[in-house]
Design a protein around this nucleic acid. Structure first.
Lengths: 181, 181
DNA sequence: ACTCATCTGTTGTGTATACGACAGATTAAA
DNA sequence: TTTAATCTGTCGTATACACAACAGATGAGT
């Protein structure tokens, strides 16, 4: 990939780091661009050089998390589905602070819808409506069905303070998804 | 004090941090500007924007340490001499890695002479050749005498892996210096 | 002897960031 | 209501930094 100017990488890292720390301190709605600039120790105007506003920043951060998880799954495509899902769950677990406040705050719909959309796209890849249990089904519908189910369970898991281990979650989800896909 | 551009502060911090880490890894003589730039994650040319070469950098770093210790003593001028010396010894102790490699390497004379000069200046402040035990003595000579003695003991202490606690050192040094000053 | 590699110090150009200032929006207190 | 304070988004100017290129130095290995 094209090399990025060190300054850009540093600044964006600092902004995201500051943002995540602030997310742990207060609700998204109460975070100001000032706060972010102060905590990241950069000029306020510099934030606007990279992001339109705090909603755009939130967008990019969510995108980053989703991409991260996506990579976790693709890099280990040679591995078991269970295996890679365990790693996804562990990632969610290790960023619990972010994801739980995300789901609690009004940022929730942003995250949820993007997560769902991403999963729909992924499920479609391995969806087969020409043979197997889904002959005659509509691809869109099955993907919507599976993705919403999957994300819904993840949300439940996080909201309930992760009552099962990542491994247990991966197994339970795998079992359920096997019945659909 | 005049506000410094955030970029300058950041960069110099990064350089010094990288330099100190490298000092712990290899001898001063084997550290290259490349190493520093790489570890600090900045462009090599940027290092030259702040320092003439690695010797100049070493100089500034030493100056920083001496100033730090100096502040420790001045800020606590209301405290006991022993008290503030304990803090100086603790500072030396907590930066043991730096100071010991400094004394072992060829950077030693740099550090030693600057440390001595600083102490001469400080001792002169509280030196009284018009009364007390030093009537008739020469100010220069007594200050040289005391500073070299003091620094020599500190060097010995560091080279021998700090066989006494900071408190013990402060007391022993205090006792000896009391006979001179 | 000679490569081959690496570091050095320097330069020129492009760009990201700092900083200060601005007017308008928002909010809280008087 | 007005006042005072803070945040916002945007701008212009100055400057620190990134990057690539350079020739010369140094050093290791052949």
């Amino acid at each position: 990939m094209a090399k990025v100017d060190r300054r850009i990488a540093r600044t964006q890292e600092a902004i995201k780091k500051a943002f995540l720390e602030l997310m742990a301190e207060k609700k998204f709605d109460y975070i100001t661009i000032q706060d972010i600039a102060d905590k990241a120790d950069i000029n306020r105007a510099t934030v606007y050089l990279h992001y339109l506003d705090k909603y755009d920043l939130l967008d990019k951060v969510i995108e980053g998390h989703i991409n991260h998880m996506s990579n976790l799954c693709e890099l280990e495509a040679d591995l078991d589905w269970i295996e890679s899902t365990v790693h996804c769950m562990e990632y969610l677990e290790s960023n619990y602070l972010f994801f739980s406040t995300m789901l609690a705050s009004e940022g929730a719909p942003y995250f949820r819808s993007r997560f769902v959309q991403h999963n729909i796209k992924e499920f479609k890849k391995e969806l087969d409506v020409l043979s197997g249990k889904n002959i005659g089904q509509n691809e869109e519908i099955v993907a919507e069905f599976a993705a919403n189910a999957y994300v819904g369970v993840v949300e439940w898991w996080l909201k309930n303070r992760m009552p099962y281990t990542p491994k247990e979650m991966a197994e339970k989800l795998g079992d359920l998804l096997d019945r659909i896909l």
